[in-house]
Simulated scan of single mutants.
Amino acid sequence: MTTASASATTAAGKYRVRPGLIVAWTLLFIGGVIMIMPLLFMFSTSLKSAGQVYDLRLIPAAPTLDNYIRVLSDGRFVRWFLNSSLIAVIVTASCLFFDSLVAYTLAKFNFAGRKIIFLAILSTLMIPTEMLVIPWYLMSSKFGWLDSYWGIMFPGMMTAFGVFLMRQFFKTVPNDFLEAARVDGLNEFQIWWKIAMPLVTPALSALAIFTFLGNWTAFFWPLIVTTDKDLYTLPVGLSSFAVEQSIQWEMIMTGAAIATIPTLLIFLFFQRYIVRGVMLGGVKG
């Protein structure tokens, strides 16, 4: 057998389609279609008139944007959208700052009880959110935080998951860089901000995305802590909107579609940071 023939045979064997791979990709494709179909029907229904709602065709016969105009003309919906945006942005910024600061301290300073503090923080991850609602509510009531933006935001302004994720990354930052910065006269806060933080950008990006999406879709706690409709976040407002529009499915789907669009855009544009942050976090852990 000639060298060329041997190479061709090797290449054919290398790229031979395996039955197991076909089955795996087929199952993944079917699973993807099952998960995306409700989303497609939601957007499809939002483009239909009231008389077309029960037409199950995915592409409407006469698509219209009237539903979006009606929903966006409702001042309450715009207010709920702005509330969710404000809360999600502030809580995300708070988590990035405080979680990173605590994580840097636990990763780069040796002091008595460091491991105990870290384990205590991690242990809070095992507590279901439902068990924390009563203490949060009592605290909010005592300090006058009910029906306020602060009451909605304070439980998520620092997270154990963020501390854990950032600590794993800060541990990989070479100590030589930090020592060189100290020799140059930088204080510890400046070292953290100017030296360490730029080196953990993938983790910061992943944490920012997770935190923003988590607060954007939060429903349970904002529902409990607020009774003023002007303070409703978008998920809570949509639930009340759905009750009011109980027989107008096109309006309900339009509101849900508008609420979903920001999360889809964030995922599409920043998905590489999500994957990179999770993969590196798992490897470094």
Score class of each variant (00 low, 15 high):
residue 1 M to R: 12
residue 3 T to E: 13
residue 3 T to I: 15
residue 6 A to G: 07
residue 8 A to M: 14
residue 11 A to S: 14
residue 15 Y to T: 14
residue 15 Y to V: 11
residue 15 Y to E: 09
residue 21 L to F: 13
residue 22 I to H: 11
residue 25 W to A: 10
residue 25 W to Y: 15
residue 32 G to R: 09
residue 33 V to F: 02
residue 35 M to C: 11
residue 47 L to S: 06
residue 54 Y to C: 03
residue 55 D to P: 07
residue 57 R to N: 13
residue 60 P to V: 04
residue 62 A to G: 08
residue 62 A to F: 07
residue 69 I to G: 11
residue 70 R to C: 04
residue 73 S to V: 11
residue 73 S to K: 14
residue 85 S to R: 02
residue 91 V to K: 03
residue 96 L to F: 03
residue 99 D to S: 05
residue 105 T to P: 00
residue 106 L to G: 03
residue 108 K to P: 01
residue 111 F to G: 05
residue 111 F to I: 09
residue 112 A to R: 13
residue 116 I to D: 01
residue 118 F to G: 01
residue 119 L to K: 06
residue 124 T to R: 03
residue 132 L to I: 04
residue 132 L to H: 05
residue 133 V to T: 10
residue 133 V to H: 09
residue 137 Y to W: 04
residue 139 M to C: 09
residue 142 K to T: 14
residue 143 F to P: 07
residue 146 L to C: 06
residue 150 W to D: 04
residue 150 W to G: 10
residue 152 I to K: 09
residue 153 M to L: 11
residue 154 F to C: 06
residue 163 V to I: 14
residue 168 Q to W: 00
residue 169 F to I: 02
residue 173 V to N: 00
residue 174 P to K: 06
residue 182 R to E: 14
residue 193 W to N: 08
residue 196 A to C: 02
residue 197 M to A: 12
residue 198 P to N: 02
residue 200 V to E: 00
residue 206 A to D: 08
residue 207 L to S: 06
residue 214 G to H: 02
residue 218 A to K: 04
residue 219 F to W: 13
residue 229 K to G: 08
residue 230 D to S: 12
residue 234 L to M: 06
residue 236 V to F: 00
residue 239 S to M: 13
residue 248 Q to P: 02
residue 251 M to F: 12
residue 253 M to F: 05
residue 254 T to Y: 02
residue 263 T to E: 12
residue 263 T to M: 15
residue 274 I to T: 04
residue 282 G to S: 14
